[in-house]
Nucleic acid binder design. Structure first.
Length: 430
RNA sequence: GGAGAGGUGGCAGAGUGGCUGAAUGCACCACCUUGCUAAGGUGGCGUGCGGGUUUCCGUACCGGGGGUUCGAAUCCCCCCCUCUCCGCCA
């Protein structure tokens, strides 16, 4: 969350940040927050004073004889009641401060373009040639079904819409791509993580998915657990409620996990193929480092670069966009999406999303570190980016590398994961 | 799922109603002493919040939440976690 001191000093900046991010309703949380905060801060000295007196009196009582104690009991009981009332009030105010503070969005970076939704995103660069085909292109789902690699019918019947079965070489290709992406990062010093997929509310709130993202999240009401939509949640929350030593930072993680998304409110959108599904596999980069905006920006570029290298190695053309204010999450300072070229869609489609949070998540998670210079504690900065998400990445992978006869060329970097094979699939008739 | 034990400061580990924000040891920091691969001495050493802001004061926190009491790490209730045994199981 946003530092309450920052909000006190410049509430207008917080309000404007919320408005720029199209969370106009949350701008009001700034005012509710300040109101409760002011009352709370007036109350605290009063309560502290009463406690001081109460403590001293209780100590005196301990030294008295039973009779003497009896004499003071009534006034002590009365003081206790008065204090209790104020403490109830304090509790309410603290809850109000906390809840409203959770609602106030992070102020976006000045570089973030203003816009309502993804149509306002600004293209920064395109990389790779958009391919042309001198034969009739098979969309990925047609190709995959013809090869016997995909069944969405049975998946829909058994698991509902936006589900799929992958079979045979396509399942292997997916695994190869995920392994390749993870290995790339591991080679750069990232630590592989296999995190929990079911998490508590504390992790969802700590990473700023809650409040607000409940509708997009599968929950297990029986156990008060939530299925993660991204391993960002359990991995970023890993060091919550603790104080790391500056010497052990940065923490670089590469997590591979299944991800679950309800995709509520997307009915009728992207219904064909493997673009938008409820369950997918993702290799994710997560960075935790010291509170330094310059360092955070460097990390942001680095994790973006890592993903670009992966796409380049897979020979997938892409573009990088500077995500506009209305398309940012509450906690994000800035976000760069990578959109891969998807021939059947005749457009770029989002496959990666690199976010910089500064201390927004860390404050919620109580994720701190001890500064080397003065031994004081400070909240960490966190970032994350997709390394590879499948089956969405299979769309460009299958379509771009398909051969006229329906087989699919395996990018060179994936061949070691597929027994050295240069193609998968069999020639299709007609 | 059944039965039992336990969760105290970075770690280990005392503490069963007031003198305990918490003994002691280890680790760590500063200074001193000594001198050869380390020993000894003194002091310091948790986090958050409010206020003052160079050294400060107050308050809260002994897994989390609630309760009893003038007073709780210590008693009661709920939850979470860990360990042991049995059952089940990839």
């Amino acid at each position: 969350m946003l530092d309450i001191k920052v909000i006190r000093d410049d509430p207008e900046a917080a309000r404007q940040g919320a408005i720029k991010k199209r969370f106009a309703d949350r701008a009001a949380a700034v005012d509710r927050l300040l109101e409760a905060d002011e009352k709370l801060r007036a109350l605290i000295p009063e309560i502290d004073g009463m406690r001081t007196a109460q403590k001293a009196a209780a100590k005196r009582m301990g030294k008295l004889s039973a009779d003497e104690r009896q004499a003071h009991l009534e006034e002590q009981k009365k003081a206790k009641q008065e204090l209790h009332q104020l403490e109830e009030r304090e509790k309410e105010l603290r809850a109000a401060v906390r809840e409203n503070q959770m609602l106030v969005p992070m102020i976006p970076d000045p570089e973030v373009p203003d816009g309502d939704d993804d149509t306002g995103n600004v293209e920064l660069r395109t990389v790779g040639e958009v391919p042309t085909f001198d034969f009739e292109l098979r969309p990925h789902q047609d190709l995959a079904e013809a090869q016997g690699w995909l069944d969405v019918q049975r998946a829909g019947h058994l698991a509902g819409s936006r589900n799929y079965y992958l079979f045979g070489d396509l399942a292997l290709l997916q695994d190869a791509a995920l392994r390749f992406a993870a290995d790339r990062l591991i080679a750069k010093g990232y630590v592989a993580v296999d995190p929990p997929l079911l998490v508590r509310d504390i992790a969802m709130r700590g990473t700023a998915f809650f409040p607000g993202g409940e509708e997009q999240t599968y929950s297990c009401g029986h156990d008060d657990l939530y299925l993660i939509g991204t391993s960002e949640v359990p991995v970023t929350a890993l060091h919550g409620d603790s104080i790391l030593d500056e010497a052990e930072l940065p923490k670089l993680y590469v997590a591979r996990s299944t991800c679950f998304r309800r995709e509520a409110g997307t009915y009728g959108k992207d219904t064909k193929g493997l673009y938008r599904v409820h369950q997918f596999q993702k290799v994710e980069q997560v960075v935790v480092d010291i509170a330094d905006e310059g360092r955070s920006k460097e990390h942001h570029q680095a994790i973006l670069q890592n993903s670009e290298e992966i796409l380049q190695a897979l020979q997938i053309p892409y573009r990088v966009v500077n995500v506009c204010s209305g398309d940012l999450g509450v906690g994000q300072v800035q976000k760069f999406d990578i959109e891969s070229w998807m021939p059947s869609r005749e457009s770029y489609g989002e496959t990666h999303s690199a976010s910089r949070f500064y201390d927004y998540q860390a404050r919620r998670l109580a994720l701190r570190y001890r500064r080397a210079e003065d031994r004081k504690t400070a909240f960490c900065h966190t970032l994350n980016n997709t390394a590879l998400a499948s089956p969405r990445v299979l769309i460009p992978l299958l379509e771009i590398h398909q051969l006229p006869d329906g087989r699919v060329a395996v990018p060179e970097v994936l061949r070691p994961y597929l027994g050295g094979r240069e193609t998968i699939g069999r020639p299709l008739n007609g």
